[in-house]
Design a protein around this nucleic acid. Sequence first.
DNA 1: CGGACACTTGAATGCTGTCAAAAGGGGTGG
DNA 2: CCACCCCTTTTGACAGCATTCAAGTGTCCG
Lengths: 239, 239
Amino acid sequence: MTPKAIQVACSNCNLRELCMPVDVTDQDMDKLDSLVATRRKIRRGESLFSNGDRFDALYAIRTGFFKTRVTTEDGRDQVTGFQMAGEIIGLDGIVGDRHSCDAVALEDAEVCEMPYGRIEELSREVPALQTHVHKIMSREIVREHGVMLLLGSMRAEERLAAFLLNLVQRLHARGFSRSELVLRMTREEIGSFLGLKLETVSRTFSKFAEDGLIEVKHRHVRILDIEALRTLVNAPEGR
Amino acid sequence: MTPKAIQVACSNCNLRELCMPVDVTDQDMDKLDSLVATRRKIRRGESLFSNGDRFDALYAIRTGFFKTRVTTEDGRDQVTGFQMAGEIIGLDGIVGDRHSCDAVALEDAEVCEMPYGRIEELSREVPALQTHVHKIMSREIVREHGVMLLLGSMRAEERLAAFLLNLVQRLHARGFSRSELVLRMTREEIGSFLGLKLETVSRTFSKFAEDGLIEVKHRHVRILDIEALRTLVNAPEGR
DNA sequence: CGGACACTTGAATGCTGTCAAAAGGGGTGG
DNA sequence: CCACCCCTTTTGACAGCATTCAAGTGTCCG
């Protein structure tokens, strides 16, 4: 028995419902199993791909936690998202044959590499996969709309509340607590994502703790009053 | 001779190189001509689609100018982009079978409606179209990364300069002047897109004019010193 | 175990928002 | 086609939130 061979098949992957289309025949599933060419381990701090790298595959995160960020020549940078198990990264590379952002592991991670050419081939044969790929890209577009709303119209407290709610919701969908979470990123990275300085992030954490909304102990956060956080995000007065 | 029938064919459309893949055989081009089901005219102020509408087609803009915006129940809203001839809108609807944003015409417009089911079908038959669709979605993702960078790390002057440069560049690609433009949107809409209040937009326009970078006469803008604008955007110190 | 890095907190500055008022245009209806 | 009215835009004064600069503490990784 070769456990490794079993693990490599998407059909046996416990993240299947996150990465793969739901309705596929056994026959199609056999094809989809051939999508993942290799597994790749990435260590904390290392990049899965970087701005300028040739694009040739999408990656499904099996374990670990990533950030993606865009940078400019003049030193500006912006974290564009945090990604966890079951999520797909690399979509930015399709348009220009090169990646336009960096994907950095925030903890040791493992990803499934899916050669893009193979994705296109199989998409033509398996309509369910085709639709699935389109939905993944559309979902990313919609997610970014939400981030734009956050960056363009929310104040610091609202941004951080929205960030925490989003994170805990995604973690809960993966079987973790709905009230407790461990942040894998620094205050500076949170700030970059939220368009705030790290001091503002830290201060806002402290204020939430003072107000009894959360408990913060460095990177451990416990949500005490999730309703209050929701109310904050839906505050009637925008910026 | 029926000029209308001729116009409906993508193969004869002067925007073809903006909407369609470049390398297609004549045979494939015949197929692609069947993509556009109908033309639709939208009058200034009307919506092409709205949040919650059932999704069933993508739209290629033939003429006119749109804004897309997301809104929340509590009255927050955010302009997520401005779209002009040759650009594709509606991608947000794929993931949830319903649109999650509004597309509003800022001037009288005409769009080509491409039923999504037909796009999927043809994508399976014509690989060049498949790749093209993927690139369009990927391009939108990358564009939004740029907007996130703008919203998350730039100050008011930098944002407005980046906005003007982007707009004039896209207009120039469509045969318009590279230094003169007519804004189709209000100061408030610019502000919503840039995460600023309309007064700040107005003030920043005035400052640019005082500094000799541009000439502003309501919605007519003439760029006098494009290099200065570029320098502003690439300013070494971010927010 | 030690040092670099991450985090917290304080004080002051400043950019952008808010409120207000006036002027200018453009669109619509007669 | 013209005139009127409303919406858009501009500008000023002031307030507030987030940034900046600085110092001290804590902690995690090698």
